[in-house]
Design a protein around this nucleic acid. Structure first.
Length: 560
RNA sequence: GGGCGCGUGGCCUAGUCAGGAUAAGGCGGCAGCCUCCUAAGCUGUAGAUCGGGGGUUCGAAUCCCCCCGCGCCCGCCA
C-alpha cells in the first residue's frame, strides 16, 4: 500500500538526483518527503540542496523535475510547484489498494523482530488505578502495533515480589483479615492498614524487614506466604486488565533472577568494570562519570539485593532473548531507568527502548496506593460501562438487555483505551470524569460506529463481486481509498518510534473519511455498476477500520 | 538547588524528533441537516501574535540561548 507508492517516489527522486549530480546528506527524511494537502507525497529536497548548490530552490527543483524518470507504476504524475516536487498516485495504485484491502493478508507488515514488551508491572499490593492503566494501555497497544508490523512479541509482566511493599502486604495479611472483596482490592485494604499501623507501631517495620530477609534466603514458609499474596493480587489485577482487553504472555518474578544466580552474576560482572566500591558496608556502582551524582547501591549492608540490581539481571536476560526490548515506565522512573541503561552499557548489554509516560493526576494531587488515594481502574470501568449502557438503551431501546450490556461493555473498554492512547505519552494529564464519560467525536465509539455502519451496509449486500474501480471518482471516495492506503505507513512508523498515539489519530481520520463517503455516496441505491464499486469500497473500509480497531485493542462492533 | 518533561483559541489535544506551501481536530457557543444504507453521524460559523524574549535560516509552533509557569525525580523504597 502506501509504503510501495512511497518507495517508488523515493526511487524516482534518487534517480533524478543522481542524474543531476546532486547529493543529499543521509538522514531519517533526507528527501524531505511529506504527505501534504497539495500532493499525495511532496518533496522539499530542493531546499536542502540550495545552500551547497548556491542556487535557488526553485531552479534546483526545476532541474530535478526534468530529470525524474517517466516510467511509472503507481505514480500518476510529478508536478513542479515552485521549490516543491509534488507526486500524485495513479488509478492503478488506487485500484491495487482496494484489491489488497479486500483481502486479509495486507494488514500485517514485514518486520520480523522478536520483541519483548514489558508493561504494567504494577506492584501486587493493590488494584490498578487510573495512572497504571496509562502504562497498560500504551503497552498493550504497542504490543498490538508491533505484531501488526510483523514482529513476534512477548508481552511480559515483571512481578515485584521481593520489595518492601510485598513484605508489608504479608504483614498486613497477618494482622488484618482479607475481606473477601475482589482480591486486588482486598490486598490493598490490608496493605493500607499495615502502613497506617506502622505509624504507631515501629515493630511492623521490623517484621517487614525480617520477611524480606527470609524471602531472599528462601525460607519455605515465607516463600509460600509471599507467593500466595502475590498470586492473589495478580488474579485481581489480571481480571481488570482483561476487562480492557489487555493480556500478558508471560510473568517474570524478580525472585527468579535471585534464585537462578543471575543477580549474583550481574554483581560480579559490574565489579569487573572497575566502577564499583564498598561504602558503609553496601556495594555500590559509581556512575558519576556518566552524569549521575548519586552512587547506585547494588547490595544492602545486610546483604539483601535491591530492585535495581534484580532489574539489571532481568534486562540482561531480556536482551539475550530478543531483538528489541521495550519498557513502558512512568515518569517517576526516568532517573532510575537512565541509571539502568548506563549500567547495561558498561556491561556491553543492549539497552531497552524506554517509553516514558508522564503522570496522570487527580484534581487533588497525585495518586498513591499506600495512602489509599486513587481512583481504581475497576471504578472507572464500572462507571463508564454504566454511562455506556444508558447511552445504548437510549439509542437502541428495542434491543435485548444482553445486547445492550454487551455493547456497553465493549464501548466502555474502547472509550477508556482510546482516551488514554490518543494523548502523546509525554503529556501529563489530569483525570477528568466528565471527559472520561464523553462518547463524542474524539473517542472510540466514533470509530466503532463507522465500522458498524459499514457492516450494516454489507449485511444487506455483500462486497464479494466483480467491480470496476474506475467508477470511484468522487472526491470523498478517492480520499477514503487514500486514507485506507496509509495504514501500513502508520503502523510502520508507530512500531519504529513506539508512538501509539499516531494510530489513534489515524483511526479518527479514517473514520472521518468513511463518514464523509457514507454521507455523500449512497451505496445501496446507486446504479448497479456504481453500487458494486461502492460496495467494494465499503468492504475495504470495513477491513481497514477493523484492523485499526483491533490494533488499538478496541472491539470492532458490527452493530451498536 | 540540580536533572528530565511539558506550555498551541474559553477548555482538551495533534503537529515539534527529521524547520517548508493557508497552524489541524475535538469539547463548549451560535446556526442548520433524519419520508434517505444506524443522527454515537454530517454541514456552516465565531474563536490562536503556537508561554515571553532574543538568535540561527530564504523560511521557525518545530532548532539554539535566556526567562516565566506547571509536572516528575534527586532513598541501603519500588
Amino acid at each position: 500500500m502506501f509504503l510501495d507508492f512511497m518507495s517508488e517516489v523515493k526511487g524516482l527522486i534518487r534517480d533524478a538526483l543522481e542524474h543531476c549530480g546532486f547529493k543529499v546528506e543521509d538522514g531519517v527524511n533526507d528527501l524531505g518527503l511529506e504527505i501534504s494537502p497539495h500532493a499525495d507525497l511532496a518533496s522539499s529536497v530542493a531546499f536542502r540542496l540550495a545552500p551547497a548548490q548556491r542556487r535557488s530552490p526553485v531552479q534546483i527543483a526545476k532541474e530535478i523535475h526534468q530529470a525524474v524518470p517517466t516510467e511509472y507504476r503507481y505514480v500518476d504524475r510529478v508536478e513542479l510547484a515552485g521549490p516543491y516536487l509534488n507526486f500524485f498516485m495513479n488509478r492503478v495504485f488506487l485500484k491495487t489498494v482496494l484489491n489488497q484491502a479486500l483481502s486479509d493478508n495486507c494488514w500485517t507488515g514485514k518486520m520480523s523482530d522478536k520483541v519483548i514488551v514489558e508493561h504494567t508491572s504494577a506492584n501486587p499490593d493493590g488494584p490498578l488505578h487510573v495512572g497504571h492503566i496509562r502504562n497498560s494501555v500504551i503497552g498493550d497497544t504497542l504490543v498490538r502495533i508491533l505484531r501488526r508490523a510483523g514482529c513476534t512479541v512477548d508481552a511480559q509482566y515483571y512481578v515485584n515480589d521481593m520489595g518492601r511493599q510485598e513484605a508489608m502486604v504479608v504483614v498486613g495479611c497477618e494482622h488484618f483479615q482479607l475481606d473477601g472483596s475482589k482480591p486486588d482490592h482486598a490486598i490493598a485494604k490490608v496493605y493500607i492498614a499495615a502502613n497506617k499501623a506502622m505509624e504507631e507501631n515501629p515493630d511492623i517495620r521490623v517484621q517487614a524487614d525480617q520477611i524480606i530477609q527470609r524471602y531472599e534466603a528462601g525460607d519455605p514458609e515465607t516463600v509460600a506466604k509471599i507467593q500466595n499474596a502475590v498470586n492473589y493480587a495478580i488474579r485481581g489485577i489480571e481480571e481488570t486488565l482483561h476487562r480492557l482487553n489487555i493480556h500478558h504472555d508471560s510473568y517474570h518474578w524478580e525472585s527468579e533472577f535471585v534464585r537462578s544466580g543471575d543477580v549474583a552474576q550481574i554483581i560480579e560482572l559490574l565489579e569487573k568494570t572497575g566502577h564499583t566500591e564498598w561504602e558503609d558496608g553496601a556495594f555500590q556502582l559509581d556512575l558519576s562519570g556518566y552524569g549521575f551524582e548519586k552512587k547506585m547501591v547494588l547490595k544492602r549492608a545486610n546483604g539483601t539485593s535491591l530492585y535495581i540490581t534484580r532489574d539489571l539481571a532481568y534486562h540482561r536476560w531480556k536482551s539475550a532473548n530478543s531483538d528489541r526490548s521495550v519498557d513502558i515506565l512512568g515518569a517517576d522512573h526516568k532517573l532510575v531507568s537512565g541509571q539502568l541503561c548506563t549500567a547495561l552499557r558498561l556491561l556491553g548489554i543492549r539497552e531497552p527502548e524506554v517509553v516514558i509516560f508522564e503522570f496522570v493526576s487527580l484534581p487533588t494531587g497525585s495518586m498513591s496506593t499506600r495512602k489509599g488515594k486513587f481512583i481504581s481502574a475497576d471504578e472507572l470501568i464500572d462507571e463508564v460501562e454504566r454511562r455506556a449502557f444508558e447511552e445504548v438503551s437510549l439509542r437502541r431501546p428495542e434491543e435485548s438487555e444482553d445486547f445492550r450490556r454487551d455493547v456497553a461493555m465493549k464501548v466502555a473498554a474502547g472509550a477508556i483505551r482510546f482516551d488514554v492512547v490518543k494523548v502523546s505519552a509525554d503529556k501529563a494529564t489530569m483525570f477528568d470524569w466528565r471527559q472520561a464519560l464523553d462518547f463524542e467525536k474524539l473517542s472510540a465509539p466514533f470509530i466503532q460506529y463507522s465500522h458498524a455502519r459499514a457492516c450494516s451496509i454489507l449485511r444487506k449486500e455483500s462486497a464479494d463481486r466483480q467491480f470496476n474501480a474506475e467508477l470511484l471518482l468522487d472526491e470523498n471516495e478517492v480520499a477514503l481509498i487514500k486514507k485506507i492506503s496509509h495504514f501500513d505507513l502508520v503502523i510502520d512508523s508507530a512500531a519504529r518510534e513506539l508512538k501509539p498515539h499516531h494510530l489513534a489519530t489515524y483511526a479518527r481520520e479514517l473514520a472521518e473519511s468513511f463518514n464523509l463517503f457514507y454521507r455523500y455516496s449512497p451505496v445501496l441505491d446507486a446504479p448497479s455498476d456504481l453500487k458494486d464499486a461502492r460496495l467494494a469500497l465499503v468492504g475495504a473500509a470495513r477491513n481497514a477500520l477493523r484492523a485499526t480497531l483491533e490494533t488499538l485493542g478496541i472491539a470492532a462492533l458490527e452493530t451498536m
